[in-house]
Simulated scan of single mutants.
Amino acid sequence: MNGNELLAKHFEEHRSHLRAVAYRMLGSLSEADDAVQVTWLKAAGADTGGVANLAGWLTTVVSRVCLDMLRSRESRREDFLDEHGAGPGARLRTDPEEEALLADSVGLALLVVLDKLSPTERIAFVLHDLFAVAFADIAPILDRTPETTQRIASRARQRVRGNSGSASDDRMRRYRAVEAFLRAAQNGEFEALLALLDPDVTYRPDEAARLLGAGTDLDGGRVLAEAFCGKAQPARAILLDGEPAMVLAPHGTLMLVMTFRFAGERITEINAVADDDRLSRIEFTLP
């Protein structure tokens, strides 16, 4: 077996790890596969004979590739949100069911929150907190000192988990109520939905949400229960600006947010937001 064949063999042994790293950094399976392919091309063109830790070296390379992709995404955000903008067939190279399963295994809520981080925050957080890479090894990727890299990861961690540390009892009750609403909607449990909704509850989608198919204005508990019963399959509960909400984020790409207001234990108001400008200003955390 020659040197190239041996490198290819070792690369295949590490492919699943590199793909997992890239997916958490990019939130897109097709982009993760692109990053892994670029990593292979860089590895094939490099002198790896003196590399003692090939797995660590490849992780560094794929991280740098992902960092470049994230920075490029920042300048063309609309292309990422519009999956068709990547070119004909670009997203068809991956199995939608496989990506959905992978997103569920990672946690769509986490992918949505990670998408709000800056490229350097995302790289530092993913490598350190999710893959236990030392700050000294992350620092050269970000072109920062280990101390600065640690501060970047800490800032990202606060944004992911929320600055308050733990939610208040009232907020957690509201969060559990939103979870219960989502579960009842997904399972088609009409009576459970009705019990969670105030008789005078209202539903108001913005214009962008209407265009996405989120419906029109609705009034009344029974009307809303009928509209939501058996729906909301891809949605997830999350904290939005510290309050419980639901997000529609297929494959980790944020499309729509639903906010909730309560009177006591019942939901009195639901608003659906899909406007890009409004979504970009929203701060998400995990409970």
Rank of each mutant, 00 (worst) to 15 (best):
T39C: 15
H128G: 05
V133M: 11
R144M: 08
G221D: 10
P244G: 03
L130K: 10
C66H: 04
A153H: 03
L248Y: 14
D275N: 07
G165T: 02
S154W: 03
D169R: 13
S164R: 13
F228A: 13
A185M: 04
I138K: 07
R64Q: 14
V62G: 05
R173H: 10
T216W: 09
L29P: 01
F125C: 07
P96V: 14
S154E: 12
L211Q: 15
L212W: 05
L108E: 15
R15N: 07
A44F: 12
S164F: 06
A124E: 00
E5L: 09
D206C: 12
H14N: 04
F260Q: 11
V113P: 01
A52S: 14
S16A: 15
I267A: 04
T120F: 08
I141S: 05
V223N: 12
D82G: 03
E121Q: 15
D115Q: 07
H10I: 08
T202W: 06
W40R: 02
D241V: 01
L193N: 12
R222W: 11
E269V: 11
L142I: 01
F262Q: 01
L114D: 04
E13W: 00
H84S: 15
N271H: 13
T39R: 00
S118D: 10
G221A: 11
R204V: 10
S63L: 05
N163L: 14
S16F: 03
M255F: 04
G162H: 10
L224P: 12
F284N: 02
A124G: 09
Q37N: 07
E78Y: 09
E191C: 03
D79H: 00
L130G: 08
A208M: 03
L239Q: 04
A237N: 13
G215D: 06
N271C: 04
A20L: 02
V38N: 06
L224G: 08
N4T: 10
L254F: 06
L279V: 11
D33G: 02
G220K: 06
E74M: 13
E189L: 11
R174M: 04
N53Y: 03
R77T: 15
A227M: 06
M172C: 08
D200A: 13
E269H: 09
M69A: 10
G215P: 12
E5D: 11
T59L: 03
P205Y: 06
L130N: 12
L117C: 05
P234S: 14
A232I: 11
F260I: 01
I123E: 01
E12D: 13
G56V: 11
V38D: 15
G220F: 02
G162D: 01
A134Q: 15
G56C: 04
R77M: 14
A153N: 07
L279A: 01
V133Y: 00
D137I: 00
S16Q: 09
F135H: 14
R155N: 05
E179S: 12
T268E: 11
S164H: 13
A43K: 01
S30M: 14
S164E: 14
R73L: 04
F284I: 06
K116V: 07
V178K: 02
V61M: 15
F190A: 11
E189W: 06
Q150L: 09
L182R: 14
